[in-house]
Design a protein around this nucleic acid. Structure first.
Ligand SMILES: NC(=O)c1ccc[n+]([C@@H]2O[C@H](COP(=O)([O-])OP(=O)(O)OC[C@H]3O[C@@H](n4cnc5c(N)ncnc54)[C@H](O)[C@@H]3O)[C@@H](O)[C@H]2O)c1
Ligand SMILES: NC(=O)c1ccc[n+]([C@@H]2O[C@H](COP(=O)([O-])OP(=O)(O)OC[C@H]3O[C@@H](n4cnc5c(N)ncnc54)[C@H](O)[C@@H]3O)[C@@H](O)[C@H]2O)c1
Lengths: 232, 232
DNA sequence: CGGGCTTTGTGAACGTGTGCACGAATGCCT
DNA sequence: AGGCATTCGTGCACACGTTCACAAAGCCCG
């Protein structure tokens, strides 16, 4: 019997890939595949095979040499490690454009993240129904979080309200936040925050586009262009 | 004239932080701040001050020792490096739940990414108007990309259609893709792809929640059944 | 039953990213 | 003018992540 239980801490980079493997393995299982090699999984996930093996090795030695991994068992182990053995209800703060799209999207419930509630400050929004859930006033947040045992909150408010939304979530007892507002949230150290910022993604793409463009550009054209800070 | 013009390659990690600095600097400028230290910028961005300085040093030596950075000038330099000196029109494929939210969101146009078009296969969607843009049939994609000089495409179709959408985008001449479908896209090497997968984000949060829960759990409980994480 | 083929699991090398610590440059004050 | 306080820019060490390469472990077949 190994002395180490779950002392193993899984590297962040690996944690962020496990969901991808999980989805692929689920698809393979649906197609009747019950054994898969690291090579094949790597191909489907768009990564290096050695990386797949190393990632999976953090879960334990669940492969069979010369054969590969048993799909069903691997799915089980990854789900277990990611804490997906039970549902994690989420609460969405902000029933605007984005909040509505999220609430109306069935994909989360399917994957174990049912929408336990949607809240908003706008009285015009309160009472409307999104994806089968009635929008409630934000003052009811603590009650929703407590009764539905919510650990994960989603911030989908305008930027200026995001910090407030986060603080309310934390006060209500939420310990993980997914933030869609383009703002850096200040929260207690114990709270896990992940940010999804579409503008940032587009700007990163812009960087690469600009880079490609400047390779084709005239190599001589240079520093003459700008010297003074013009106002933006 | 310096022999190396833009030889400097900026590390990926830095590129992904520059947009954050840029937004903060813009806000500071709006508040009338015209000089900022790495310390302060770091605080606002939620990162280490040395990291800020190192990041900015890739752009050149634009700070003044003992003083800090001139906000307006820094904004200009970052915009320049990210290729934000002109607009990058984007085309959205898929006018569903998410595509509508994206098209209706004014934030992109403001930040230099105007929606040049939205396309869909569904005849029922074609002709409707989203955020001031009429939805067009996907067959018109090449024409839109060419006439509007679109380099960046957004995939907002269901998963099973995402690869097709990506291929059409590439065929039409797009060279960067922002993918919202939970699928690994296969594209030519030269095409830049960034993925936004909300389910992955939630699963990462789930991992951390599960981890917190298992710390409070009985330390002796071994490899038996899955211990049930009670409420927090 | 042994040899050969396949594929895992992992040590080691390499590359990338982070953060400290400190010299260097600059502005301000006396 | 000189000294002092501040803040940048960066060398360096360390941590983290990726990839290669290969022995070990298993299966299959003759
Ligand atoms: N819509 C998009 O496609 C999109 C894309 C990228 C980023 N975002 C970001 O997502 C966030 C939401 O975008 P949106 O388009 O849904 O905005 P929105 O204005 O449509 O909706 C925001 C909602 O939040 C509510 N709200 C305001 N203050 C609140 C508070 N203190 N507590 C609770 N609710 C509050 C408003 O009443 C409104 O219903 C914004 O930060 C935006 O920058 C949106
Ligand atoms: N809605 C959300 O909040 C949300 C959240 C996370 C992820 N996603 C992902 O974003 C994607 C879109 O989600 P959605 O909720 O908007 O789905 P949706 O079903 O509402 O919309 C998809 C749209 O794509 C169109 N379409 C289908 N095949 C197409 C093709 N080959 N070419 C062009 N258009 C095509 C459909 O006609 C439809 O209008 C999905 O992959 C989903 O998993 C959505």
């Amino acid at each position: 019997m190994p002395p180490e239980r779950n002392r193993r801490r899984i590297p962040d980079a690996t944690v962020s890939r496990l969901p991808v493997y999980l989805r692929i393995l689920g698809e393979q299982a649906d197609e009747g595949v019950d054994s898969i090699s690291s090579e094949r999984l790597a191909e489907l996930a768009g990564v290096n095979a050695a990386k797949v093996r190393k990632d999976l090795s953090y879960l334990g030695s669940y492969g069979t040499r010369g054969v590969g991994y048993e799909v069903g068992y691997l799915v089980y182990q990854i789900r277990r490690e990611l804490g997906l053995t039970h549902d994690w209800p989420v609460v969405i703060v902000g029933a605007g454009n984005l909040g509505q799209a999220l609430a109306g999207y069935g994909g989360f419930g399917e994957r174990g993240f049912p929408v336990a509630g949607v809240v908003d400050v706008d009285p015009a929004k309160v009472g409307t129904v999104l994806g089968g859930v009635r929008v409630r006033h934000i003052d009811e947040l603590p009650q929703i979080v407590q009764t539905k045992r919510v650990n994960i909150g989603v911030v989908a408010t305008p930027p200026h309200a995001a910090q407030d939304a986060a603080e309310r979530l934390v006060a209500a007892g939420v310990t993980s936040i997914l933030n869609f507002a383009p703002v850096v949230l200040a929260v207690p150290r114990a709270i896990e925050v992940r940010k999804v910022d579409l503008a940032v993604e587009l700007q990163i793409l812009s960087y690469h586009e600009q880079r490609k463009a400047s390779l084709h550009a005239v190599p001589g054209a240079g520093a003459g262009a700008v010297s003074r800070p013009a106002s933006a």
